[in-house]
C-alpha cells in the first residue's frame, strides 16, 4: 500500500513567518499537536510541535518531568510564551523534518514511525510541496482493515 492511499490530504499548516501566538491558536483549533511549516512557495520548511514550544519556553521542563519532586512554575511558562508570541514559527520549528513521498510504501513509513518515535509525518511531492500528512493512527487503521479482510 502506497502513502497516497492512506495519507490525509489535509494541508493545515503555518508559514515560516507565522507568529507563535497564531501557531498556538491554530493548534488549539485544529486539535493537532504538531503542524507543518511551509515557505512562501508552499514547500515544506519544517515542523513545529507543542513540544518544541514548551521546550523553548521552559528549557528545563522536560528534565524536570523526569523528577517528581520538582514541579515547573507555570507563571514562568506563561511569561516565556508571552515573550515568544510575536516570534516567527521558523525560530522554533524543527528544520529538515522526516518526510515521506506519496509513492512510498507503508512498510517504509511504519519503520520511520517506530525508529523515529513519530506520531505524524508530512508528505511532500518531488518539488518539496506539502501534499498531505500520514498519522500513525491512519496506518494502524489501514493495516487493521487489511487484517480484517484477510480473516
Amino acid at each position: 500500500m502506497k502513502v497516497r492511499e492512506f495519507m490525509r490530504k489535509d494541508l493545515s499548516s503555518v508559514e515560516t513567518d507565522t507568529p507563535i501566538s497564531e501557531v498556538i491558536y491554530i493548534m488549539e483549533h485544529t486539535e493537532l499537536s504538531s503542524l507543518p511549516v511551509v515557505d512562501d512557495k508552499a514547500r515544506l520548511a519544517g515542523v513545529i510541535s507543542e513540544r518544541d514550544l514548551i521546550r523553548a519556553a521552559l528549557p528545563s521542563y522536560f528534565d524536570m518531568l523526569q523528577s517528581t519532586s520538582v514541579l515547573p512554575n507555570i507563571d514562568q511558562l506563561a511569561k516565556a510564551l508571552e515573550r515568544m508570541a510575536d516570534h516567527p514559527a521558523s525560530s522554533y520549528m524543527t528544520e529538515a523534518p522526516v518526510t515521506v513521498h506519496p509513492e512510498d510504501e507503508d512498510l517504509q513509513v511504519a519503520e520511520l514511525f517506530i525508529r523515529k518515535r513519530l506520531k505524524q509525518i508530512p508528505v511532500v511531492d518531488a518539488a518539496g510541496h506539502l501534499v498531505g500528512i500520514v498519522r500513525r493512527i491512519d496506518l494502524l487503521d489501514r493495516l487493521s482493515q487489511r487484517g480484517v479482510r484477510r480473516t
Binding site: R8, K9, D10, L11, S12, Y25, I26, H29, T30, V131, G132
Partner: peptide, 11 residues
C-alpha cells in the same frame, strides 16, 4: 477528507 478532496482551510 473522506471524499478524497484535499483540504486547505483556515481556522
Amino acid at each position: 477528507l473522506e471524499e478524497g478532496v484535499t483540504a486547505n482551510f483556515v481556522w
